[in-house]
Simulated scan of single mutants.
Amino acid sequence: MTEIRVRDLRTADPEDTAAYAAVRRAAVPALLATAASVAYSCEHAHPDARYRALVAEADGEVVGTAQVGIAQDSPEPGQGFLNIYVHPRRCGLGAGSLLARTAEEYLAHEGATALYSWVLDTPRNRAFAARRGYRASRTAHFLRLDLARGGLPPLADPPPGVELRSAADFRDDPRPLFALDAETAADEPGDVTAEFTDYAHWLTETWRHPLLDHELTTVAVVDGEPAAFTLAHTDGASRYASGMTGTARAHRGRGLAKLAKNASLHRARAAGFAEAFTGNDSENGPMVAINQWFGYETYDTEVRHVRTIA
């Protein structure tokens, strides 16, 4: 009989973080995960997030993972999250159930009143969530673009008064990018509203994250101020992912986000990256249109589920 146990990830153990990342990549290939990025995210999580990374072991082998915590950047308290992934070849052992139970008990102890979870859009996964009392909410898609063999729209010159820069140009003072990220994140569709007010934590969580590529991250600047941007994440090998793309409210409708993302994708392809991934909330019409224009195709789908608890 297979023995399943759940424990905290050993963030100081490169083999453990590598095993965690491998399960994440196998379950959701569109998500970039490396041993270094997993360890960094755990070690630099905001203390108010009460973040835990859990692993499920089957006879000593890591077969499942869970990201668990409180959305500390939400103005509404008690918004918990748990995202659980089990290796596709190791489903049916009970690892997911034990991870969910452990995460739910922990979040209830930490004062969560609502539990949000992204669930892969398959009959098995949706049934798993329904059995635990979760109801389906919104849908999001993972999109993929073949950079190696696919085409990209031709590069266009920026309109008068607009300049394209990289995030590397803001290394001495990235605060203007923080302000732009905060404004655009506040307008993203979602179940849990986010308000970025902690600049120091943004520097740690976003600006210094090991997946962020400052050279490929591209910013459209108008009159010296960032007006639109696309954050570029890479795995250091062949895969590129858009971490966030957005435009300041005062500059929307001018095609600046499309301009920045196109420049970033062209430079990513020139640097040897073969695949580009991004995520799209199904209700975010402007970004859906932009990504269709680039030629992204739906790669996978997740459904946000929620459960309220006393």
Rank of each mutant, 00 (worst) to 15 (best):
I4D: 05
V6R: 11
T11F: 14
A19D: 02
A22Q: 01
A35Q: 05
V38W: 04
S41Y: 08
Y51C: 08
A53F: 08
V55D: 10
A58H: 10
A58D: 10
D59F: 08
E61S: 07
Q67T: 13
S74H: 04
G78P: 09
Q79T: 04
L82T: 15
L82E: 12
I84M: 10
V86S: 09
P88N: 11
G92W: 10
L98W: 01
T102E: 14
A112G: 04
A114D: 13
Y116A: 07
D121I: 08
R126M: 14
T139Y: 04
H141S: 12
L145M: 05
R149A: 15
G151S: 15
A156Y: 06
D157N: 06
V162W: 08
S166F: 06
P176Y: 11
L177P: 04
A194V: 14
T197P: 02
T204D: 13
E215V: 07
L216R: 00
L216I: 04
A220R: 09
V222Q: 07
V222T: 08
D223T: 07
A227F: 08
T230F: 00
D235G: 06
D235R: 11
S242I: 15
G243R: 07
G243M: 10
G246A: 05
A248I: 00
R249H: 12
H251M: 06
R254D: 02
L256M: 12
K261G: 02
K261R: 14
L265Y: 02
R267S: 04
R267W: 03
A268T: 03
A271F: 00
A274Q: 10
A276M: 05
Q292D: 15
G295K: 09
Y296P: 04
V306D: 00
